[in-house]
Design a protein around this nucleic acid. Structure first.
Lengths: 233, 233
DNA sequence: TTTGCATTGTTATTAAATTAACAATGTTTA
DNA sequence: TAAACATTGTTAATTTAATAACAATGCAAA
């Protein structure tokens, strides 16, 4: 088994964290740091130092005692693992606010992962550029995707169009889809699909805020009860 | 222990799925469906029917044999669990593309969770409205948040401003923060924080696409090897 | 030199999440 | 009526993820 193959068995959560570590490390590098301890990374990511060390163990990286991890080395290793050597091209379908946000957000951030095209059905948007990325007619999705060797499609259309968009992308031979609409799509086996819905995250935050509010309210009641009980004596 | 209290112990993943189930159910309701089977929900969410049934068991909802679950009843129960009776108000800080996308995305979708204000430091944006939501000067965050009883803040500023924004929100007494910038923030205990970074999700998709590409390439090699081996006989 | 200390790397343990297994049930069909 | 079937609800088993525990290391200070 090749060394590279061991990476195929990395836990999904570790993959996510590696991406996050790298981003934190890049910021540290900008600040002229050259080494970092596991507890520093942990603090940034709100996790435990053990978790960090365990992840780094899994990818076979060793730091030095008393100095910690070499930031540049670690960035390079993470790139080896999660980036594709040849680079991967990405398209955004739906050039509304969210699509444009992603382009602005992302452009120039990664060498090996580039947004290279946008698509929309709105004639006002077709032919225009956003941050250097051309917007094409969705009708030409098939050709452009093949022509530009695009392997990943991000769906940021209105949710009413999510399924037809996914079908178009699959038809065009896309390998991975990231669906940002709140309406889940279906894709055949062999196409990697990630659904991400911003409403879910917000509702989750709301739930835990509600829980905390109720907990706080209950503990007031409890204190009052205790007071009453005490006055019974 | 009150019935409500059992909900506090629901697994985090179940909370997320309940939010997703509800959204799927609302769509089904629009299509004039009144009952749904566990395997139908499962198909929509790309999970197993057992997972669905287990989640519903945890919230104490029973369906009927041969008819499945009553959609309206289930929607109401999920609302009971994850929504706050009084409703929760939300502010968006950073009225760029992402902030506007969230407002358009969300407005009018939930009764009990409302985006009621936006903030920005750009004078061109202050005083304008997006989809009925006013944009205020970030300087007045403290007052507005108290005045409008805002409990959750969503950070959609440039990442360079994420930490100062989080500090302002905490200072104003916010209970929950959802950070969409790629730069993690720190908040004191008692403030619920969710970090969501769109780059991580995209890099994850890219990783699994890369893995699949390599697997496909390897299997071609293997088939060739087999061919060679066969020709040795 | 030697003791103390902070840190890494790794194994063991625990906790969380998912999946499997299957009894119970009521509907439909023979 | 009885057999077959599809579905729910729940416990048991498994898998995945996180945490704890601790030996090893080597620098710094006494």
């Amino acid at each position: 088994m090749k060394a590279r193959d061991t990476f195929k068995q990395l836990p999904h959560k570790t993959i996510e964290r590696l991406s996050q570590y790298r981003r934190a490390l890049l910021i540290c590098l900008e600040n002229n740091k050259d080494h970092i301890f596991s507890h520093e990374i942990a603090k940034i990511q709100h996790i435990t130092p053990v978790q960090v060390r365990r992840d780094l163990m899994l990818i076979g990286y060793s730091g030095t005692l008393r100095k910690g991890y070499n930031i540049q080395e670690l960035i390079d290793l993470i790139a080896d693992i999660i980036d594709s050597d040849e680079g991967i091209n990405v398209a955004i379908v739906g050039m509304g606010n969210l699509g444009r946000a992603l382009i602005n957000y992302f452009s120039g951030k990664r060498h090996k992962l580039s947004i290279v095209a946008g698509f929309d059905i709105n004639p006002d948007k077709i032919g225009k550029k956003v941050n250097g990325i051309s917007c094409y007619d969705s009708k030409s999705m098939g050709e452009i995707i093949k022509e530009k060797n695009i392997e990943i499609g991000i769906i940021t259309t209105p949710s009413s169009h999510s399924m037809t968009t996914a079908n178009q992308l699959v038809e065009a031979g896309i390998k991975g889809i990231l669906n940002y609409t709140p309406k889940p799509v279906n894709v055949p086996d062999g196409v990697y699909l990630e659904e991400y819905d911003m409403i879910t995250t917000l509702e989750k935050v709301a739930f835990y805020v509600k829980m905390e509010n109720e907990r706080a309210a209950d503990s007031v009641v409890t204190r009052q009860d205790q007071g009453t009980a005490a006055s019974d004596f």
